[in-house]
């Protein structure tokens, strides 16, 4: 019975959060906020994937924007130029994610920390340049008139409908992420960061673990990109810049590295905070950037882990430090 109780304890917050996200459109029917809500959910999916690389395995990639963009372009080009059903186009998108994962995972085996960030920046710039300059990707104007997803003639063409479509995908990805967070993969990912030698001694192949992390992450990113393409129905290469990649990493750090809740919180903060700050007038972007920088410098372990710590202290009321064994929790040391 005790096992069952702890399971409920762990599952309950996830349900509460999903309920909150699903009820969001009931309170804010404004199309503008719905669009940002959709974006926040897409960011959640990417952040959950990125967590495997940056959060758990501790490799700093700044090329996620390109992964997201390649997913979007794969699906958009297939459905506009070849008339492939967007649902069927998800298969090539998954293959694309798998390929990128293998391709980016390979340099991660050979190059060290900051150099790896440079390689991924180069990857992002190569992709953006090619998307901007190649003829069949629509050059700088991008791809227009992308068809929305549809089931039996029911088109997900309004903001509200796409909101629930993306929500369904988010649920699927959250389940996958939670399952992985409970599996041996997560432990292997964390060991790659903390002690690769010990991992090798235990008979686990470090390179295959790293490549697995990359493949998972880029599949998450590519699917989110495809959803974005069919939600926005118009994509340009100027969306998928290094700045986008940076904001994905910022999401993780704001929330707390390697932390499931941190990913969700970070994605929502990055999506909504600029909109809330808009009342400050022309300088809102500066305020946002300063806030983000301060958050990174002052809370290097993430806002979420600090909240968790103080809540844990309150609950235990001096009975000692909470075990912090939440879902996907990983305290980031140095």
């Amino acid at each position: 019975m005790k096992n069952y109780e702890s399971l409920v304890k762990k599952i309950f917050p996830v349900f509460a959060m999903l309920l909150a996200i699903s009820l969001f459109p009931v309170f804010l029917k404004n199309n503008y906020y719905l669009t940002i809500g959709c974006q926040a959910m897409l960011y959640c999916i990417v952040a959950l994937g990125l967590n495997f690389i940056v959060g758990m395995s501790g490799m700093m990639t700044l090329g996620t924007g390109a992964v997201y963009g390649l997913g979007a372009y794969t699906s958009a080009l297939l459905s506009t130029k070849l008339g492939v059903n967007p649902w069927l186009a998800l298969i090539p998108v998954l293959v694309m994610g798998w390929l990128i994962g293998k391709g980016l995972g390979f340099p991660s085996l050979r190059v060290q920390f900051v150099y790896f960030s440079l390689v991924t920046i180069a990857f992002n710039e190569i992709v953006r340049n090619l998307l901007t300059n190649l003829e069949f990707t629509g050059s700088g104007t991008g791809v227009r008139n992308i068809p929305p997803y549809s089931i039996f003639g029911f088109e997900f063409n309004t903001q509200l409908r796409s909101y629930y479509l993306i929500f369904a995908f988010l649920v699927v990805f959250i389940i996958i992420a939670l399952r992985i967070a409970k599996s041996k993969w997560r432990r292997a990912f964390i060991a790659v960061k903390d002690n690769p030698e010990a991992l090798e001694v235990s008979g686990i192949n470090v390179s295959s673990v790293k490549i697995t992390a990359f493949t998972l992450s880029s599949i998450f990113g590519c699917v989110a990109g495809a959803l974005y393409a069919h939600f926005n129905r118009y994509i340009t290469p100027s969306t998928f810049t290094t700045d986008l990649s940076i904001s994905f990493v910022v999401m993780l750090i704001i929330g707390g590295l390697g932390n499931f809740w941190g990913c969700i919180l970070g994605a929502y903060v990055v999506a909504f905070l600029p909109q809330l700050l808009r009342s400050a007038g022309t300088s809102y972007k500066l305020i946002y950037a300063v806030l983000m920088m301060l958050a990174v410098i002052l809370f290097p372990n993430g806002i979420m882990s600090d909240i968790r710590r103080s809540v844990g202290k309150l609950i235990n009321n001096g009975k000692g430090f909470s075990k912090g064994g939440g879902i996907g929790e990983n305290r980031t040391g140095n």
Binding site: I246, V249, V250, I253, L257, S283, K285, L286, M292, V296
Partner: peptide, 30 residues
């Protein structure tokens, strides 16, 4: 920024300098 950050985690240092760039960029626009 640079001197206080020199002993922090490499990951945080990278993101902090990146964010510094964004701050400067927004400041320049303003």
């Amino acid at each position: 920024i640079f001197i206080p950050l020199r002993n922090s985690t490499r990951l945080i240092a990278v993101v902090a300098t990146v964010m510094l760039g964004q701050v400067i960029n927004e400041g320049v626009i303003l």
